[in-house]
Computed example of a mutant assay.
Amino acid sequence: MAYGIDNFSDGDTTVVRWERKKKDLPLILISCCMPYDSEAEPPPEKFRQAIRMWRHDVLIGCDAHAHHTLWGSSNVNQRGESLVNFLSSTNLCVCNRSCDSPFVVRNRSEVLDLTLATNLGTLMASNWMVSEKSSPLDHCWIRSRITLQLEMRAPFKNSQRANWDGYSAALESEMARRVQELIRRGKSIDSAVECLSAVMREAFEANCPISHPAKCGRPP
Rank of each mutant, 00 (worst) to 15 (best):
residue 90 T to Q: 05
residue 118 T to H: 14
residue 126 S to W: 11
residue 99 C to H: 01
residue 30 I to V: 10
residue 34 M to D: 07
residue 33 C to D: 10
residue 110 E to D: 14
residue 116 L to S: 05
residue 65 H to T: 01
residue 122 T to Y: 09
residue 94 V to I: 15
residue 37 D to V: 08
residue 54 W to K: 01
residue 120 L to D: 07
residue 53 M to C: 10
residue 112 L to H: 09
residue 39 E to L: 13
residue 95 C to V: 07
residue 43 P to D: 15
residue 18 W to C: 10
residue 14 T to D: 12
residue 60 I to W: 05
residue 34 M to I: 15
residue 132 E to A: 09
residue 81 E to F: 01
residue 66 A to T: 11
residue 115 T to G: 11
residue 89 S to E: 15
residue 119 N to W: 02
residue 110 E to V: 13
residue 52 R to H: 09
residue 25 L to V: 14
residue 32 C to Q: 09
residue 124 M to V: 15
residue 14 T to S: 12
residue 94 V to D: 14
residue 88 S to E: 13
residue 121 G to N: 11
residue 14 T to F: 12
residue 40 A to H: 14
residue 46 K to D: 11
residue 85 N to S: 07
residue 103 F to C: 09
residue 30 I to P: 01
residue 49 Q to A: 11
residue 126 S to N: 12
residue 12 D to V: 12
residue 32 C to E: 15
residue 66 A to K: 07
residue 118 T to E: 04
residue 120 L to Q: 13
residue 91 N to I: 06
residue 36 Y to Q: 10
residue 72 G to W: 11
residue 130 V to I: 12
residue 116 L to T: 08
residue 57 D to T: 11
residue 31 S to L: 08
residue 71 W to H: 03
residue 61 G to S: 02
residue 50 A to S: 09
residue 88 S to C: 07
residue 42 P to W: 11
residue 105 V to L: 01
residue 103 F to W: 07
residue 27 L to E: 07
residue 71 W to L: 07
residue 114 L to E: 14
residue 129 M to P: 01
